[in-house]
Design a protein around this nucleic acid. Structure first.
Lengths: 201, 201
DNA sequence: GTCTATATGGAGATAGAC
DNA sequence: GTCTATCTCCATATAGAC
């Protein structure tokens, strides 16, 4: 480990161990000592390299999605695609989400959770919408998507966990679609714009 | 406090202090020492009376809603009523919800969170539905409602927090209603039952 | 740059005196 | 029922060897 010239070997080992343990056990559940042991290093080194436990957590707990599938798809199937994306997230991403939610008592972790919610769920949707309601629509849709993650990963609804993935994508996607681009209803006042036009606020 | 015959005064003081501190600071954030100090008692007494910190948490962190407003209302406005109910929960209930979510790394707290999700959101809805899809519909609707709580209280979406309550009730309620009693769509195969009839699984 | 050893202060929990 | 003393484990920090 102490190879001169390479320099960052131990640091990387600590980062890798921290990523795994924080995902599996959360912020409070993973101790600096456990991380050091898993990395084959001394607990003091963890602090030396990353200043403190919280900074190590923030450096390793990032959650992103690949927005690309949301960019060039018809806006009418945005909802389905978003649900398909979040349900396709791997165990690592699920661990990060859980760690952020459960650790959000810490102000800095709460900030990371808010940023993640904004960047992963709200922004990709808002980018595909237009009109004065784009922001609130994106936020409501993100809220619905977050509800699915909450039920599956936080509250662990065993029935939903066992449900067919395509079923969830279809029905939950259709639900989100009602917020993104509400279908034309029967009676509409003259002059009301079409799709995505009914006012929200 | 040491009045012979009264007996439970100190115990109640500890319970009251624990309820407040767990709501405000969460499971990890509230220490046994802080609870004891707030109750004017010794830390050892807290353990003596409640066995350990986790049992004290479970004994004080309960979340219920008054289902009554959901029982005698037309099933067509169930969604709105549910959102109205959860948005009307006071700060104490919000604190309990947050404490359960953030503390759900502990297996027993996770169990309490799952029970609460089931009893507060799913069961009252399922009780008003019928047909083979009643359970899955109730679960999906509960999931959507949980998403609103997640966005407001966990991820703290400032825009939604600042939104008009009646607006949220109307639009979010309508959204949930699409899962509970989907409106009749244009083309429907012959023989398909009406409201609440389109199959989900 | 890297690591060992050690110190500090706070946490939950227990034993036992009163 | 109550409290004092104490145990163990934790995050964090520092001093100093290599």
């Amino acid at each position: 480990m102490a190879q001169p010239g390479t320099g960052t070997t131990t640091r990387e080992a600590i980062r890798t161990a921290a990523t795994r343990l924080f995902q599996e056990r959360g912020y409070a559940g993973a101790t600096v000592r456990q991380i050091a042991a898993a990395a084959g290093a001394d607990p003091a080194l963890v602090i030396r390299h990353f200043k403190n436990k919280e900074l190590l957590f923030l450096e390793t707990m990032h959650l992103t999605i690949d927005d690309e599938p949301l960019l060039d798809v018809p806006v009418e199937v945005l909802g389905e695609r978003l649900i398909d994306l979040v349900l396709g997230l791997d165990g690592g991403a699920q661990g990060v989400f859980l760690a952020l939610v459960r650790g959000s008592n810490e102000p800095e972790i709460l900030r990371r959770l808010k940023d993640t919610h904004e960047k992963v769920l709200i922004e990709p949707l808002r980018a595909r919408l237009s009109g004065p309601d784009a922001d609130i629509r994106a936020r409501l849709a993100a809220s619905v998507a977050a509800g699915l993650l909450h039920s599956l990963w936080v509250a662990r609804d065993e029935t939903l966990l066992g449900a067919d993935r395509s079923t969830l994508v279809t029905h939950y996607g259709a639900l989100i679609q009602h917020v993104l681009t509400p279908p034309l209803s029967g009676a509409r006042p003259a002059g009301t714009p079409s799709v995505a036009g009914s006012s929200f606020l």
